[in-house]
């Protein structure tokens, strides 16, 4: 009896703690919503009956070329994703189903990129891009990320689970290797593509350091870099405006996340277990 009461009391405290932590974790977003939709005089004053306004968003849209930044980010994220899918699919197929000299060494070399990511090699990659004449292009932002060890690894694991009999059957019907890849492997690995795609999109939508280094004009800058320049303390904009700009920049991904929450979480889980 007393034991059971203890557990419920403990459970209640635990539930309260879990909720409190959840509240803490969304605090920054809640604040951004508050400040973004209220006039600047309410940025640091919390009044439930303060009038809502869209003024801040209008100001942001006027003061900085966010439309262009959105476009750049969209092009960047899509082109990286398409290239990653192509390069990783081909390499993963080779690792999963072909036997060739040096396969193990090549695979170990690929895995090296899990550890030595492009962020670490910014200095040399910048000089490579300037030799190639690609500084300040959207292509230069994406190139170092297109062959992704993570993607190759993930797809290889998936391809390895696909029964070889399916491939054999396709071969008997006269399919060549590329046809088999396209007709058998790719469709069966769809959940992995979805998982990897979501992880990749959120990573590159949010990526900052390398894009900051390699771009220097409105025509190439992605949202994150545009936002950093817009919100820099020396540009002297107020909290309401910065909150509105921040919300604008995160909105597409955040809305997608809220709508497909289960997908997102499951995808990250799927990508995590491998």
């Amino acid at each position: 009896m007393s034991m059971a009461r203890q557990t419920t009391l403990f459970n209640r405290i635990e539930i309260a703690a879990a909720w409190a932590l959840a509240f803490l974790w969304v605090m920054p977003l809640l604040y951004a919503l508050w400040a973004g939709f209220h006039a600047p005089e309410y940025a640091t004053r919390f009044d439930l009956f303060a009038p809502l306004t869209l003024e801040n968003f209008a100001t942001v849209w006027e003061q900085a070329p966010f439309g262009r930044y959105f476009f750049n980010t969209f092009i960047l994220v899509t082109s990286i994703l398409v290239m990653q899918f192509i390069l990783c699919t081909l390499a993963a197929y080779a690792f999963a189903r072909y036997e060739f000299r040096g396969r193990e060494v090549a695979f170990a070399l690929v895995l090296l990129q899990l550890m030595i990511m492009p962020e670490v090699l910014i200095v040399e990659n910048y000089s490579t891009m300037s030799k190639l004449g690609l500084v300040d292009t959207i292509a230069a932002i994406g190139l170092p990320y297109m062959a992704s060890a993570f993607g190759i690894f993930l797809l290889r694991q998936t391809f390895k689970t696909i029964p070889k009999e399916l491939e054999e059957a396709a071969r008997l019907e006269g399919c060549g290797p590329m046809m088999i890849l396209w007709k058998v492997y790719v469709p069966l690995a769809r959940p992995t593509y979805l998982a990897y795609g979501l992880v990749s999109i959120s990573y590159h939508w949010n990526n900052f350091l390398w894009p900051l280094i390699i771009t220097n004009s409105v025509e190439t800058r992605p949202l994150t870099v545009g936002l950093a320049i817009f919100g820099a303390p020396e540009s002297g904009v107020d909290w309401s405006i910065i909150s509105a700009a921040t919300l604008l920049a995160v909105a597409p991904l955040l809305v997608a996340f809220i709508l497909f929450q289960r997908q997102f979480v499951q995808s990250f889980m799927h990508a995590g277990i491998k």
């Binding site: 879990a18 909720w19 932590l21 959840a22 509240f23 974790w25 969304v26 920054p28 977003l29 604040y31 951004a32 400040a35 959120s202 939508w205 949010n206 990526n207 900052f208 949202l223 994150t224 936002l227 950093a228 919100g231 303390p233 909290w239 910065i242 909150s243 700009a245 921040t246 920049a249 995160v250 991904l253 955040l254 996340f257 809220i258 929450q261 997102f264 979480v265 990250f268």
Partner: peptide, 27 residues
């Protein structure tokens, strides 16, 4: 409200560091 709590915990992951830093600067 398990779903909501899980979503709350996971939210920072989908937000760009650079954007949330703006909010934390205010904090």
């Amino acid at each position: 409200a398990r779903g909501l709590v899980r979503m709350a915990y996971f939210t920072p992951t989908v937000l760009p560091m650079i954007a949330v830093a703006n909010i934390w600067l205010f904090f």
